[in-house]
Design a protein around this nucleic acid. Structure first.
Lengths: 165, 165
DNA sequence: CGCATTTTCTTGAGTCATTCAAGAAACGAT
DNA sequence: ATCGTTTCTTGAATGACTCAAGAAAATGCG
């Protein structure tokens, strides 16, 4: 875990707590679900493939199960799904603190940032066109420190958003 | 074009203006490029498939050409690509007014909204973690007027983000 | 204008994240 | 423990998007 992200990471809950989390959301407790929740908490902004990898260190699961679980816990609000343009889906624990993300255009690295406005103000667009708004998602785009200060030995790569985060 | 989006739509330029736009961006002027630019200006928030359809009303082009053109004009800054979570890529003319979007969770409808903060403030996260930020993208999530006021004759559909915008 | 150079478009195949479907296994309420 | 429901496994399919090689078209120059 990077220094940058530490602020938004509460202590990783023990296995028992994931059970609580699932039961609290009216979801059945299964080993794949606990393992996926653990993987999401331990790997900030991980994509599905990384989560499958992490889960399989403890357990044999099909990729389909991971997709199903991620959908279930996301729908239940336990996990937040983020998907910057041109990226695959990524997941993080839902901390309910309305923090946002900075994404590097070059390498795809993601960092957490606090909401500049506080939870409430952020939800108030000037004109909501009659929409019932319940979330404001902010993505800051730019270059991360390593990509912004070009290093000939380590050139920024556009495509490979998945290796570096 | 809906009333809601009218504010962000300048008059649709004539064909000649698209030529100017392309030349100004150091891009060669070709019939597919002019047609794609026109389609993007005439169809707010259209996905690639819709753009292919619109272009093919005037011209025979391969889908690959449309993908290539969209990439070229997006990289050149003539067009903005937006891709809310779980949606395919969508395109709009780059108006450089830093407006944002409201997306309906149910049907995927997208509406434009002005930036609540003005161009400058919006680019200033509280802590940029050393990133050189050049854009702040805000997506408000909620329910559009038709999905928010349930109508038994027209139930909200989750999956079909592409039919309704 | 006509040719050469470079870029762009066509054609057709391929990739990869994600989803679908059917049956087996696991959960939890009685 | 058993039953009914939900979840997981297996294997195939979908679909947006990309790759690659050659044909066609656009720009620059004589």
């Amino acid at each position: 875990m990077t220094q940058e992200n530490a602020k938004h990471c509460q202590a990783v809950p023990a296995s028992l707590d994931y059970e609580q989390l699932l039961r609290g959301a009216d979801l059945r407790v299964t080993r794949p679900r606990v393992a996926v929740l653990a993987a999401v908490h331990e790997n900030p902004h991980a994509d599905t493939d990384s989560i499958i990898g992490a889960v399989r260190e403890d357990l044999t699961v099909s990729h389909q199960a991971v997709y199903d679980v991620l959908r279930a816990v996301t729908d239940a609000g336990l996990v937040r799904r983020i998907q910057p343009s041109r990226s695959v889906a990524r997941y993080e624990p839902n901390t309910h603190d309305n923090h946002h993300h900075i994404v590097c255009r070059s390498c795809g690295a993601i960092a957490d940032v606090d909401c500049a406005l506080g939870t409430a103000a952020c939800l108030t667009p000037v004109d909501d066109h009659g929409y019932a708004v319940d979330e404001a998602e902010v993505i800051y785009w730019g270059l991360c420190p390593s990509c912004g200060t070009p290093d000939p030995a380590n050139p920024p790569v556009r495509k490979d958003f998945r290796v570096c985060f």
